[in-house]
């Protein structure tokens, strides 16, 4: 019996240690809380925080108006889209993580096109997507886009902007380095030179995916993925993605926000830029703004 008790104690101790170490970071992060990465965290925990920030799960709601999307071909010819975006964080209520509404405001040809998206908490589930189609003046439920499709025709894929989840990849911490800096071609400015980062290698679980791995630089301060390098099956770098993460000071609290993105396709020389003003957070958006009825209010 004594020997059996020692075994049990060791088992409880083992389970206790296992529980303690895993419960600190590996559990789901709480909604409406701000997290930043810390020294000693695993690659997966750092990425978990990154996703928490990416989908602004620290906030109750947010609004970005306008969002400017630029498509720049190698000759410099540029096309532009303007949109506004509203998001409400459902924090898992009714199985939903968050709801998004994007309304295109420019150019006129696509003005009024509105996309309502509900994202489930369950990473196995696709999004629910409705469109308001100005040419038909009606709402149309559509099937979720393929994750590797271009997002609004840009160099970003759908998953890079809105659907990729923590569970889609495996992670390895490559090291901790100071970032060399990124020359933001849109303005010519050198961004984030010398800031300390975690460097993480991410490998997709999906077979035959459009990239074989990506190297992600995570800003230690904000936890934002400031730079990503995408490699093809032969290990060649084919795309880079820069994201400018900053702190938005709300007085009593600070949130991490993306204010610009630049994605370059190194094979074609085409790049896409997204420019945003600092978002408005926690203004008490009504969930009724994220319904089909709200889509039908469109006048264009």
């Amino acid at each position: 019996m004594k020997g059996g008790g020692a075994v049990m104690r060791r088992l409880f101790l083992f389970l206790g240690i296992l529980f303690f170490t895993s419960s600190v970071f590996a559990q789901e992060l709480e909604y409406n809380k701000v997290y930043t990465p810390k020294e000693g965290m695993s690659a997966e925990d750092i990425m978990r925080i990154k996703y928490h920030n990416k989908y602004s799960l620290y906030a109750k709601d947010y609004q970005q108006t306008p969002i400017e999307v630029l498509y720049v071909d190698p000759s410099g010819f540029t096309r532009k889209r303007l949109a506004k975006r509203l998001r409400i964080i459902k924090a898992g209520q009714e199985g939903i993580s968050y709801k998004d509404l994007v309304v295109v405001t420019y150019p006129t040809e696509v003005k009024g096109l509105a996309i309502l998206t509900w994202t489930y908490l369950d990473p196995e589930k696709d999004q629910e997507v409705w469109l308001w189609l100005p040419s038909l003046k009606k709402v149309r439920k559509i099937s979720a886009s393929e994750d590797d499709d271009a997002f609004m025709g840009a160099d970003f894929t759908v998953e890079e902007v809105s659907t990729r989840r923590l569970e889609d990849e495996t992670y390895r911490l490559v090291g901790e380095k100071d970032f060399e800096g990124y020359k933001f071609e849109h303005t010519g400015q050198l961004k984030f030179k010398g800031i300390p980062c975690f460097v993480i290698e991410c490998t997709p679980l999906k077979p035959h995916w459009y990239y074989s791995k990506r190297i992600v630089w995570i800003d230690k301060d904000t936890g934002g993925n400031i730079f990503e390098e995408y490699y093809d099956k032969k290990g060649r770098l084919f795309k880079t993605l820069f994201r400018e993460w900053v702190w938005t000071d709300l007085g009593d609290r600070k949130y991490q926000s993306q204010i610009s993105l630049e994605c370059k396709d190194l094979r074609t020389g085409h790049r896409s830029v997204i420019l945003m003003r600092k978002p408005i957070y926690d203004q008490g958006l009504s969930e009724y703004e994220f319904t089909v009825k709200a889509l039908m209010r469109s006048r264009w």
Binding site: Y120, E124, K125, D126, Q127, I142, S143, A144
Partner: peptide, 17 residues
């Protein structure tokens, strides 16, 4: 009616109306 098959499986990504 319409329904999107959002769950993983054979009909994933299908929207029926």
């Amino acid at each position: 009616f319409n329904r999107s098959f959002v769950e993983a499986g054979l009909f994933e990504g299908l929207m029926v109306k």
